[in-house]
Simulated assay, not measured.
Amino acid sequence: MCGRYASTKSAADIADEFQAVDATQESTLPVPGADYNVAPTKSVLSVVARHPRDSDGKADPNRTVRSVRVMRWGLVPSWAKDPSIGNRMINARSETADEKPAYRKAVVSRRCLLPAEGWYEWRREGKAKQPYFVTGTDGASLAMAGLWEFWRPKDGGEPLVTAAVLTTAAIGPLTDIHDRMPLLVPSDHWETWLNPDLGPDADELAALLHPSEDDLTSVVDRMELRPVSSKVNNVRNEGPALLERVDLAAPVEEQKTLALDLNG
């Protein structure tokens, strides 16, 4: 998976879709609005499930609350000297995340979902790279499996909450553009994935981290692979036009004109 995706629904809409509480007002990070070109280090919306804590900070083991939170894309391990390491830790391989020092604690108890309309990939076609948008066909958000962490500065400042997207081997037509894809969690497995009490040896967790070919195929069969304008190459470009299909058969000059027109 390349480091770019689209997340355009509001926190309130995400909370409704994922049956969660909107807790974004508690964040010290800026709450993101519609973002058609999400890039590393940006604030992103995530869905987590945690045991609520009382005024003394004691967790209630008998209750679990699912909430929408704001995190920065690019996981910063708790032991990192500074947060810049997160710039290159936007993705984690699902096959080995539980073995890596940066991710293994998060695999056990800090799993999240990162809602998205879809993600971008680039395929070399001749001398250029053609961007594609990979999205579902039913209008529902894709739930990308993620891991999250707290990082606290030594000076006692505000903690930073960060996340990484888990990836798995691509399958079917997606292999034509990249050998990896985000690990997507179907809605009937959200509760299992978010369960903070699910132990590292649980069969249910292993099944989600290492999906079968049939499981992946059932997800990919509901995906659309859409060529889009090269305007998305620049992280400063924004707007719904970035998701619009382009005609690859159109003359090169016509495609360039379309790209220039996307931001009006």
Rank of each mutant, 00 (worst) to 15 (best):
K81G: 14
P83C: 06
S84H: 09
I85L: 10
N87K: 09
N87D: 12
N87Y: 07
N87P: 01
R88F: 10
M89R: 03
M89K: 02
I90D: 03
I90P: 02
A92K: 01
R93Y: 07
R93N: 10
S94N: 02
D98I: 07
D98K: 10
E99K: 11
E99G: 06
E99H: 10
K100T: 12
P101A: 04
P101T: 05
A102K: 03
A102F: 05
A102L: 06
R104S: 06
R104I: 10
R104E: 12
K105H: 11
V107T: 14
V108P: 02
V108R: 09
R111A: 07
R111M: 13
R111H: 11
L113G: 01
P115M: 10
G118A: 04
G118I: 01
G118C: 03
Y120G: 00
W122A: 12
R123C: 03
R124F: 08
R124L: 09
R124M: 13
K127H: 06
K127M: 08
A128H: 12
P131R: 01
P131G: 02
P131W: 00
P131E: 04
P131T: 01
Y132T: 07
F133I: 09
V134T: 13
V134Y: 07
V134C: 13
T135G: 06
G136N: 02
T137F: 00
T137H: 06
D138N: 11
G139H: 07
G139K: 08
G139Y: 07
G139D: 04
S141F: 06
L142P: 00
L142C: 04
A143N: 08
A143I: 03
A143P: 01
M144Q: 10
M144G: 04
M144P: 09
G146V: 07
G146M: 09
G146K: 10
L147M: 05
W151S: 09
W151L: 05
R152E: 15
P153N: 15
P153W: 12
K154P: 08
K154V: 15
G156I: 15
G156N: 06
G157A: 13
E158P: 11
P159M: 04
V161A: 08
V161P: 04
V161C: 08
T162V: 11
A163H: 06
A163T: 15
V165S: 03
V165L: 12
L166A: 02
T167M: 08
T167Q: 05
T168P: 14
T168N: 14
A170M: 13
I171F: 11
G172P: 10
T175P: 12
T175K: 15
D176G: 14
I177H: 05
H178D: 12
D179R: 11
D179G: 08
D179S: 14
R180D: 11
R180Y: 12
P182E: 01
L183Q: 03
V185S: 00
V185L: 14
S187L: 05
S187A: 15
W190E: 00
T192K: 02
T192C: 02
W193G: 04
W193L: 05
W193R: 08
L194K: 01
L194P: 03
